[in-house]
Design a binder for these strands. Structure first.
Lengths: 168, 168
DNA sequence: TTTTATTTTCAAAATATTTTGAAAATTCAA
DNA sequence: TTGAATTTTCAAAATATTTTGAAAATAAAA
């Protein structure tokens, strides 16, 4: 497989993959393009490479910057903005975990805490099943939350070394 | 908060939450409804509770059964099919991990294996960045794959007990 | 068998999301 | 300043996804 074919394949698959994770195709494709680019790119470069409109590239790049996955870099003497992606996949994963935890897990945990003290007779089977289910999800979330915190703090070597040996 | 309010809130939030994970709102709401129901429900029950059409409930229930999160149960003497959800959240999570691993992670790993042997001069910076990125993702995926396998095999007590102590 | 209840399918309609592109805003050099 | 280059915004258009509901298929009862 030639490099252009492989790039094409990677960008397209990465985009398809991302849709299973609630991330839009274009955002993932731009991320993929930047991940395999040895040098920073401009919005025009991305428009050309991926055949996208200026507005679309602009919106999705901003989203990637918000997620902390892409940085705007200013090259001396250049008028245009350049963008570059963090290449260390461990750091990428850590950043995604951190953001999703903040955006999704934490709000969900706040909701569960509220829902747990529902009024009603604990002997009523509907009340019981509701509180049991909420309680179960709350416990699970708490464990997941703690685990993710440790993963975020851990560096790659610690993870790959100690944890994986432990897991085997 | 009364039980009906709390149920409503849970079902609606669970649906919204799910959209961030590439799961459709209705499927998640049906799942939520079954999670808090102490007894099995029919498709008609779900249609009424969630104000959905018959076709919609039918499709999404089938999807939940495919994911292994919901079971069809036949009550003796009853003509209609009843459905019930696995209530143990650890088992739910394990099942989801297992399925997503099979449906997404494994195909991605096969693709990465192919993309790694792209033709071209390793000294070319484009080739180098491409193979480095793919290699990095491949390594990371391999670690994640192994970790998920252990989590799937581990039982809840082992996980919550030993693993979380380890993580602290 | 025939009838009735129930489930499944799927084309069309409704809804939601993404993409475009041109206008407005901003930035920077002259 | 002014004006050219660049970035941002956002309403409208295009596209994709979800939902409906009625017809077809299936299963059970009469």
């Amino acid at each position: 497989m030639t490099l252009p074919e492989a790039k094409q394949q990677f960008i397209s698959s990465w985009g398809a993959f991302a849709t299973h994770w609630g991330i839009n195709r274009t955002m993932a494709q731009i991320h993929a393009l930047l991940l395999i680019s040895p040098t920073p790119l401009t919005q025009d470069d991305m428009m050309t490479e991926l055949s996208l409109s200026r507005g679309n590239v602009n919106m999705n790049i901003r989203e990637l910057v918000d997620w902390g996955l892409v940085d705007r870099v200013l090259l001396p003497g250049e008028r245009k903005d350049y963008f570059t992606a963090e290449k260390d996949i461990w750091k990428v994963a850590t950043q995604i975990i951190k953001e999703r935890k903040k955006r999704e897990l934490e709000p969900m945990m706040r909701l569960l805490a509220q829902l747990e003290n529902v009024e009603g007779d604990k002997k009523d089977k509907d009340v019981k099943q509701f509180t049991d289910t909420i309680g179960g999800i709350k416990n699970f979330s708490k464990q997941a939350d703690r685990m993710l915190d440790v993963m975020i703090k851990a560096d790659e070597n610690w993870f790959v070394g100690s944890l994986l040996k432990f897991f085997k």
